Amino acid sequence: MAAVTSRLSGRQTCAPENEDLSDEQMQELLEQAAARLRTQATSAQITRQEEQVFRFPRLDAGALPKSYVRSDGHVAHLDSARLLTEKDRKLSSQARKVEDPITVKKAVLEKKKATTGSDWFDLPRTDLTPGLKRDLQLLKMRNVLDPHRHYKKESGKMKAPEFSQVGTILQGPTEYFSARIQNRDRKKTFIEEVLSGEAETGRFKKKYGEIQNTKTSGKKAFYKALKAKRAGGIKKR
């Protein structure tokens, strides 16, 4: 027995060497070959349908910029003027400063802590100068300046605010005659205003005299003043 290969089906059929294939065998081989052809045709049709379904649209790149590389035959030429912009060319020709990121972050945090932030109009940190310290102390003792005004009593020592700013109140044009302060009465600090008011009224000096009279009542100073008053009365007689 020898193996016989069919060109149509590719299958091998065992048959005697000297014997021809029977009609039944030939019919079987032809049917197998026809089935194989139908399968191949169906697969090819499915592949063409898939290509039509999944075909990507053609992209339009538009007007592309001119390339900075041009070819002259087998030689390529480079346009170096188009590799960098004029700004980058200037930066590359000078020394550049490289900052430490930790130092930069620290400086940003210090700058942020120097003010109260945008929610509080960026008030700066208080610079406690001697003049500002005196003004704050005077504000704390403002209840003794005017006996007709009463302020909320404060307890504890004077503590300067962490954030503050000193400004000047500008009077409007409608207050020129009603609430205008003359230039000779304008002072730079609160201390100068208080001293100027004391020079006009003499209230503190008078108050000091009343306190001293109360303290010296019934003591040597009071007795000496009484003797001097009596002596003066005798001489007049």
Rank of each mutant, 00 (worst) to 15 (best):
R96L: 14
R70L: 05
A231L: 03
L84M: 12
L21E: 00
D20N: 07
T42R: 12
R55M: 09
E86M: 01
K105Q: 15
E198N: 06
I181W: 03
E200I: 13
D135S: 15
E154V: 03
T189N: 03
G10C: 08
T201L: 03
S43E: 04
K90Q: 12
G156P: 07
S71F: 08
T189R: 10
R48D: 14
A231Y: 02
G73F: 00
E110A: 15
H77M: 05
G10L: 06
Q52F: 06
K153D: 09
Q27A: 15
D100W: 05
R237Q: 13
G218F: 08
L109N: 10
A107H: 06
Y223A: 14
D20A: 11
M158K: 00
L109S: 09
A2T: 14
E162W: 00
E31P: 04
F56Q: 06
K187C: 09
P65N: 08
T174I: 02
E28M: 05
S93W: 02
L21G: 08
K159Y: 01
T115F: 09
T126F: 12
L128F: 06
V53A: 01
L139H: 09
Y208S: 05
L64I: 10
P65L: 07
R134D: 07
Q40L: 11
T189F: 08
G232L: 00
R230H: 04
P57M: 03
E210C: 02
R58W: 00
D60C: 01
N183E: 15
L195Q: 06
L59C: 10
E51R: 09
K206S: 11
L195M: 09
E31L: 08
R96H: 10
V69R: 04
D135G: 12
G73T: 04
H150I: 05
K219Y: 12
A199F: 03
G233T: 08
K236V: 03
K105M: 13
Q40I: 10
Q212H: 01
K106D: 13
K112E: 14
K220M: 11
A61I: 11
P101F: 00
R48T: 07
L29W: 01
L59T: 14
S92Q: 10
G117R: 00
S217T: 04
F54W: 05
M141T: 13
A199R: 01
K219C: 12
A107D: 09
L195G: 02
D23W: 07
A35D: 13
T116C: 08
S22F: 03
Q94N: 00
Q94S: 12
A107W: 05
G209F: 01
I181F: 04
M141V: 06
L145M: 15
T103E: 15
S6F: 03
M1F: 07
R7I: 05
S155H: 09
A63W: 06
K187M: 12
F204C: 06
E99F: 03
V53I: 15
L123Y: 03
T189I: 12
H150K: 10
V108G: 01
A225D: 14
H74S: 14
L136K: 04
Q94K: 04
E193S: 08
I191V: 12
L8K: 11
I181K: 01
Q40Y: 02
L78W: 12
K227H: 11
K106S: 14
T13P: 02
K90E: 08
Q94L: 01
A34C: 07
D146C: 15
E28K: 10
R96Q: 15
Q32R: 08
P101T: 05
R7G: 00
Q52D: 09
